[in-house]
Nucleic acid binder design. Structure first.
Length: 465
RNA sequence: GGUAGCAUAGCCAAGCGGUAAGGCAUAGGUCUGCAAAACCUUGAUCCCCGGUUCAAAUCCGGGUGCUACCUCCA
């Protein structure tokens, strides 16, 4: 498999550290609010990558943190009159609800910053001991210029960064490029821990370095996150980890593109964002996920009602195909069509195509179009009178591919109640007598209940919307 | 000022050296009691200019336009 490595700016063959295994770390949310559609993209993208690795037989260890110590959480706690831990606990719970709706599988480990303070302190101390960091008034800063390779991920060089007018010069920092590893407490009420430098809390970047090391080791295979974390967050992680451990931090860095609204980046700071919670009022998590995977993960994608609507219709095309197959698997003919065995054998071609495009830097857009091609082939076969056996095989094939993308949640099979069955039977009787008025009345009645009836050669198909 | 990236049909979007996938929308048709779904048919020389090549949407150079990062942000 090839992946685009931000570190080298090119696609590279993926070679794991340990054969057959993948160690992945993905930056998780700061839990002070519901997450928005832009936050959702890396969750979905890297969940899909993880699923694909598993599909290809790798054993994956996947770690995604929760940043539960942060200014924004502290501010939120003040606003709501509750403690910071209460805020983060609440939004961790909400994270799992929305991520679950998006069919994002839980990470093997979801480490929290608040549970890694001793490790973080030790990490910072090592950096001080090695001469990469210094204490100043209870803060600890990283001496950016000491790390010779600083800038290798983002393609920046320290002198250009230094000349940028937008870097504020802190009072106690020795160099404007230095960043905080540890922040001294400013107010008594702030959440803080004991440390060799006094009461305080970790800086933002150090947590990821520490938690990745603890749960995955000093060198990992893949580090993922949004493109906007590339600098400074990931650059700083590299500086911290490699200075501390003396070995490469991550072999591959993968960054997803951002989501735009009317062509502008959506972000919490701009306020032009939509939470997944809100979008879920209009679309299912599956459709949202399908939308997010409909473009290549590195390209920016625009979000709008119109595009979501278009995605929903496309998604329904696949869903309808699956529904039809499920129906035929039960009610279809036992008699095979002439070339049915060949058609079933041809499924492997779609599988191979799917693997080929996913192997190429996880091209989910092409993967989806392969699924559409499969759907077309299936629809033709169904039109030509495919058998029960075909339906079962086709259903299995389509489920195999959609499961890798995670775009269909496993749903409980709906039982058709007696009352509903009675109405359906009555309508069939009415149709037999050509009492179209009554038949349509029943169909409309059920439609109002969110149930669509399709009259097919194999009988009535019941679809719940 | 520094650094990335993008520009393909009405819209979304793949392709990244051999003469343009797929989805949505549109129009016509088939099937159906009517529907629903499905099926068939329907569309682009790829921002502009120059170059390399037998061959370029794909490579190189120069434009133009857009976006992002350099500040908390996925």
């Amino acid at each position: 498999m090839k992946v685009y490595n931000t570190l080298t700016n090119r696609k590279e063959e993926f070679v794991p550290i340990e054969e057959g295994k993948v160690k992945m770390y993905v930056c998780g949310p700061t839990v002070y609010n519901f997450f928005h559609i832009g936050n959702a993209r890396p969750f979905v993208v890297f969940d899909t990558l993880r699923r694909y690795f598993k599909y290809r037989g790798y054993e994956v260890k996947f770690v995604q943190n929760f940043t539960d110590v942060d200014d924004k959480i502290i501010n939120r706690a003040k606003e709501e009159g509750i403690t910071a831990p209460e805020v983060s606990e609440k939004y961790i719970e909400e994270y799992f609800k929305d991520a679950g709706a998006l069919n994002v599988i839980k990470a093997d480990v979801h480490p929290k910053v608040s549970e890694h303070i001793p490790e973080i302190i030790a990490f910072v101390q090592t950096l001080i001991d090695k001469g990469y960091a210094y204490e100043a008034d209870g803060d600890v800063y990283y001496s950016t210029r000491k790390f010779k390779e600083y800038g290798k991920l983002s393609g920046q060089n320290v002198d250009d960064l230094g000349s940028g007018a937008r870097i504020a010069i802190g009072e106690v920092k020795k160099d404007p490029l230095d960043f905080a590893l540890w922040k001294a407490r400013k107010e008594e009420s702030e959440i803080a821990w004991e440390s060799p430098w006094g009461m305080g809390r970790p800086g933002w970047h150090i947590e990821c370095s520490t938690m990745a090391k603890k749960h995955l080791g000093e060198t990992i295979d893949i580090h993922g996150g949004g493109q906007d974390l590339q600098f400074p967050h990931h650059e700083n992680e590299i500086a911290q980890s490699e200075a501390c451990n003396g070995v490469p931090f991550s072999h591959y860095w993968m960054h997803n593109g951002y989501i735009t609204i009317d062509g502008e980046k959506m972000s919490k700071s701009k306020g032009n964002f939509f939470t997944v919670r809100d979008i879920r009022d209009h679309y299912t998590g599956d459709v949202i996920r399908f939308f997010l995977l409909s473009g290549h993960y590195r390209s920016p994608i625009n979000f709008s009602d119109e595009l979501m609507e278009s995605a929903k219709v496309g998604y329904d095309r696949i869903a309808t195909c699956k529904d039809t197959l499920s129906f035929l698997a039960k009610n279809g003919s036992d008699e095979k069509m002439a070339d049915e065995d060949k058609l079933i054998a041809d499924f492997d071609g779609f599988r191979q195509k799917f693997i080929e495009v996913m192997d190429d830097d996880m091209n989910t857009a092409d993967a989806i179009s392969t699924i559409f091609d499969l759907v077309s082939a299936i629809n033709v076969a169904v039109k030509d009178g495919a058998s029960k056996t075909y339906a079962e095989a086709a259903l299995k094939m389509i489920a195999e591919l959609t499961d890798v993308l995670g775009i269909f949640q496993i749903e409980e099979e709906d039982m058709i109640g007696d009352e509903l069955q009675a109405l359906i039977d009555e309508r069939q009787a009415a149709r037999k007598e050509k009492n179209w008025a009554r038949a349509d009345e029943i169909r409309d009645q059920l439609a109002a209940m969110g149930i669509t009836l399709k009259d097919t050669p194999q009988g009535v198909q019941v679809i719940r919307n």
